[in-house]
């Protein structure tokens, strides 16, 4: 498999087309946060909305436009983090970042399994210019969770 084929694995192409969680919906949850991220070098955009139930990332929806890596990555992370705790989603983010920094090699431990489809982005690590494409959705996720936590805390104060 060439480096190019390693980067554009079938699972990535599938996510770029199927776009899990695409389309923003109104969420009837106490803690909702939204983040808009732009990749200034190419104009790629993601708007991602998170709903929390307690410490659980209950719902992730997004809309965006951009390259197949950026769109597939948001799709894969949506599928991955939904239903996980905030702490677990932080761990997934750290694992994904580590994978991006690993120059195209698997991490070689249980984090590879933990990442599921997101592990297929391993080949992106060989192309430094594309790493931010794969990360834009994760940036939006972390920011949206922080916003949701803030909105939840505000709601509690009003109660």
């Amino acid at each position: 498999m060439s480096s190019l084929e390693q980067m554009y694995q079938q699972v990535i192409m599938d996510h770029a087309r199927a776009r899990h969680g695409a389309g923003l919906v109104d969420l009837d949850l106490a803690a909702v946060g939204e983040s808009h991220q732009v990749n200034t070098t190419c104009g790629d955009e993601v708007t991602l909305r998170v709903g929390l139930e307690g410490d659980t990332v209950a719902s992730v929806h997004w809309e965006g436009q951009g390259c197949s890596i950026s769109q597939a990555s948001v799709s894969a992370l949506t599928e991955l983090v939904e239903g996980h705790s905030i702490r677990e989603s932080d761990e997934l983010y750290e694992a994904f970042r580590a994978l991006m920094g690993n120059r195209g090699e698997d991490l070689g431990d249980d984090r590879d399994d933990m990442l599921g489809d997101a592990g297929a982005f391993v080949g992106v690590g060989k192309y430094p210019a594309r790493i931010k494409c794969a990360l834009i959705g994760w940036m939006a996720l972390r920011d949206a969770i922080a916003q949701a936590q803030a909105s939840g805390a505000e709601g509690e104060q009003h109660d």
Partner: peptide, 21 residues
């Protein structure tokens, strides 16, 4: 096909172009 993806396929063949805005 997004310009970044176009550029990546060309780059794989040694063809260096500009992609984006």
């Amino acid at each position: 096909v997004h310009p970044h993806d176009v550029g990546q396929v060309l780059d794989d063949q040694g063809i260096e172009v500009r992609v984006g805005h």
